[in-house]
Each structure stands twice: as C-alpha cells, then as structure tokens.
C-alpha cells in the first residue's frame, strides 16, 4: 500500500488486468464473422451473404429508406389527419344545418301575415294603458272604429 494510491487505483489495476487478458486472447479468423453473418442473413430471410451488386446496393438503400416503423408512423399520422378532417367537416355540416334553421326562423318572422298578428298581440298586451287603448282603439278593435257609429 503506497501513500499515493488513489481511490481509482483499483480501477487502473482492473484495467491493466483486463488489458493483459485482451493481449493474450486469440483473434479468431474473420471467416468466423462471415459465417455468422451468412447465418444471420438466413435467419432474417436474406440468404447467404455475397458481395452485392450495384443494383442490389441501390435496392437495399431504397428499402432502408422505407422502414416498417416509418410506415406505422405514417399510417398513424394519416389516421389522425382523417379523423381531424372528418371532425371538421362534421362541425361545418352541423353549423350549416343550424344556420339553415336560423334562416328559416328569420323567414318566418319576416312573413307579413304572421308578423302582423304577432305585432298586434305584442302591442295590445304589453302593459299599454287604457287611455292609450282608447286612442288606438281603431288599431286594436276588430275593424269597427267608433267613427263609424258617428
């Protein structure tokens, strides 16, 4: 034990020990990796590994561009867009229906015949004084003004 030993000396010793192990480890021939690569290709349904042609490389690059995860993300995004657009269209349709109903109500209130009735009812029943009634009796009576009697 030396005074200049640090807390991390232990780490250095581990590193040195493993470095020795690494140095003495045999390097397996690269063909081992190649055969694993072929086996891995077979598992993935890609067949034995061979040097790909230029066309195959281009094709592989194209396939890599469209990955399943991207397809899923794209479909999800499309579904969200369709849902939102549908909701918007529904909303617009409902608004139109409501405004159409409102328009017909306006048309109803603008009808002169019904309007007259409503106006008369309003005028004669809304706290108008007796004297007012007398003055406007020709308006509120049933078409028999007092003058006629005179």
């Amino acid at each position: 034990m030396k005074d200049n030993d640090s807390l991390y000396d232990i780490e250095k010793k581990i590193g040195a020990a493993v470095a020795e192990e690494c140095a003495s480890a045999p390097l397996p021939p690269f063909s081992v990796v190649l055969s694993r690569l072929s086996a891995s290709g077979r598992e993935d349904g890609e067949g034995e590994w061979t040097e790909p042609s230029v066309e195959e490389k281009a094709d592989a690059a194209r396939r890599r561009r469209i990955r399943p995860s991207r397809v899923v993300v794209g479909l999800s995004a499309a579904a969200v867009v369709v849902f939102l657009t549908g909701g918007l269209l529904l909303n617009v349709m409902l608004n139109r229906k409501e405004s159409a109903q409102a328009d017909s109500a306006v048309e109803y209130s603008e009808n002169p015949e019904t309007d007259g009735e409503m106006g008369e009812i309003g005028r004669c029943s809304s706290g108008v004084s007796d004297s007012d009634l007398r003055e406007d009796s020709d308006e509120c009576s049933s078409g028999q003004p007092e003058r006629d009697g005179e």
Binding site: M1, D3, N4, D5, S6, L7, Y8, D9, I10
Partner: peptide, 9 residues
C-alpha cells in the same frame, strides 16, 4: 481497503 485509497482521479 488497501487496494485503493481516498484521493482524486
């Protein structure tokens, strides 16, 4: 304990 002591990296 003797394998490493307090100190800096």
């Amino acid at each position: 304990e003797g394998f490493g002591r307090e100190g800096t990296e």
